[in-house]
Design a protein around this nucleic acid. Structure first.
Lengths: 154, 154
DNA sequence: TGATGGCCATCAAGGTTTTGATACTGTGCC
DNA sequence: GGCACAGTATCAAAACCTTGATGGCCATCA
């Protein structure tokens, strides 16, 4: 079956975006399967991972690190807090910011999840030589730049 | 600010998944900005594009083409139908399947959206030489394979 | 001191996605 | 004919994400 039509502006098999999307789709599906046994979703795992490296960070800053909106992060944090994986307390000086930290339970969940998630990352890394990894990262970075340029001139 | 900790199993700057995720994030953000003026979301745009190439396809088949679950596609189709961009009618033989087709309005919306979305794809294509495009697709495909292998052995 | 701007948190509404479960229909096999 | 199987559609619950809008807090500057 033909996936996409050619009547539109560009033939489907020349759209590199599809290749990137496919790779990311496979990646997120694999990670989901990896972190699920630890009782976490992918966004929750990403949040805990970022939190482990930045204790006491604010929700908005955490959102920037995880590349989501502050509102989206709020929901994730609320779920994590209800389950006791994180704890939030008002910042001593700036009362408007809530400091967020991992609990022991949260760190344990993160470690269980990361142990399995890292298998995926190792598999990707093992597929390529050091030279190829460098090439892939370089190409993806240029891709990023091109997209950003195009979007800003839209 | 350090994005991710190293206490976990693998340093963050060796995780190629992050590069892929970043590229896809930039891509989807750019496409969102592109199709928004046409009154479409990215999933809606993807659905209409697939529909243009496969008139009369069933909802479940459409879901497979767009790499989403049938349930997710149902919601998208319901929104599109309520706005008159598509129409669904029972299949003459198989009464359980609903044939879906673009309406004239839908085709117009798709063309308006694609005109802008294709700018992004062209920008990506223009960033690379033919050789580089081939390399990038090859690396992403191998990445895909590695992920699939790792996920199946999880 | 008072005003402006920036950062933070939050409410609200709409859209997308996932998992799980149910039901109907047509096909192929016994 | 009867039965299991595959494909399709759909309901329900939970989670995530987005845009838009609001209110509180702090620092800077006039």
């Amino acid at each position: 079956m033909r996936l996409y039509a050619h009547f539109m502006g560009m033939p489907a098999d020349e759209r590199l975006g599809l290749d990137i999307k496919r790779a990311e789709q496979a990646l997120i599906a694999a990670k989901q399967a990896a972190v699920r046994p630890a009782g976490l979703t992918v966004p929750q795992y990403a949040t805990l991972l970022a939190l482990a490296g930045n204790p006491g960070i604010s929700g908005a800053a955490l959102a920037r690190v995880c590349l989501v909106t502050p509102q989206a992060m709020t929901v994730v944090l609320k779920n994590l807090e209800e389950r006791g994986l994180i704890e939030r307390s008002p910042h001593p000086w700036h009362r408007s910011v809530l400091e967020t930290r991992l609990t022991e339970t949260g760190r344990a969940a993160l470690e269980a999840a990361d142990e399995r998630a890292v298998v995926i990352e190792r598999a990707i890394a093992a597929e390529f030589s050091a030279e190829e990894r460098k090439t892939l990262r370089g190409l993806l970075a240029r891709c990023n730049d091109a997209i950003a340029r195009a979007a800003s001139e839209l």
